[in-house]
Design a binder for these strands. Structure first.
Lengths: 145, 145
DNA sequence: TGTTGTTAGTTACAAAATCAACCATTAACA
DNA sequence: TGTTAATGGTTGATTTTGTAACTAACAACA
């Protein structure tokens, strides 16, 4: 007996997740790109420092799961534009502590507000139950690795 | 009064969706990459043709929301490797009908099986309710555009 | 017909992501 | 100590993507 049921691509989780991720990040991307000329890697580094304060590149990598070369380049660009400062650790000179400057914090505050409003707006398209379970399920999937 | 609650990055939908999408597509990517040397755009084109049969690049674009240049390049590579054939429409010579070859269908069948088993495996980490609502919510988000 | 506008698909070039090799520094330990 | 391994971070080469401009074919309509 041959399998004839058509495969439902729209319901294949890796595909579906990617479609949803792409669609839902478009509007936010528009903002950090147009307003600050940032890339995805850059707003992520900015947010990590905005939220957790002083961190090393390695710590950002652990929290964000971004590859270290991405982080290295994002940090370099953010430092060029004076959004953050780098300071070497005296004890272990391989380490560099990264910290937002005043304008880095301003950009973070601005984008954070945009993010909060945008997330709320996305949430409105879902019921409270959907929202709760969606986020819970996504957390599980994201933590699988 | 100043806002002091820390922003919850792990709960920001565009970020969370992206993390879940990336994590959940890793294992599948390994397969189509190692087994057939394909890129994400390529397995997607392959699947569209496997599922819907003969299609033009434009139709694939409408269904997948991929940009036409991505599709053009994916089609070129798949044609090079003899996974599909291109046939010009006599009536409108701008159109090219794409169709899987025998080995294209074989690759599709193989990867489709992998995808089905993998999706089932992902589903197991979630409760039936979570699964249903997750997919429903993702569909809504993906269709927002 | 001829002109103008659209459409399907490709190509060229710039921007970005990936991967491996690379420094400099610290750790481990014979 | 001296040697080897591991770590934090950067760099360079290659691959992939993104953007715009392009070609060829068709459509609309004067």
């Amino acid at each position: 007996m041959t399998e004839n049921t058509p495969f439902d691509l729209q319901n294949f989780l890796p595909y579906l997740l990617n479609q949803a991720a792409e669609e839902s990040s478009l509007a936010f991307q528009q903002v950090y790109k147009d307003r600050y000329g940032m890339l995805r890697t850059e707003w992520r580094v900015l947010f990590h420092l905005g939220i957790y304060g002083r961190l090393t590149a390695k710590e950002i990598g652990e929290r964000s799961k971004m590859h270290k070369t991405k982080i290295s380049r994002a940090v370099a660009r953010l430092a060029d534009r004076r959004f953050l400062t780098r300071e070497q650790d005296d004890r272990d000179r391989r380490l560099e502590y990264l910290e937002l400057t005043a304008s880095g914090r301003a950009a973070y505050g601005d984008l954070r507000g945009v993010a909060e409003r945008y997330d709320a707006q996305l949430s409105e398209t879902l019921s409270p139950d959907e929202n709760r379970l969606l986020r819970q399920a996504l957390q599980k999937l994201a933590r699988m690795g």
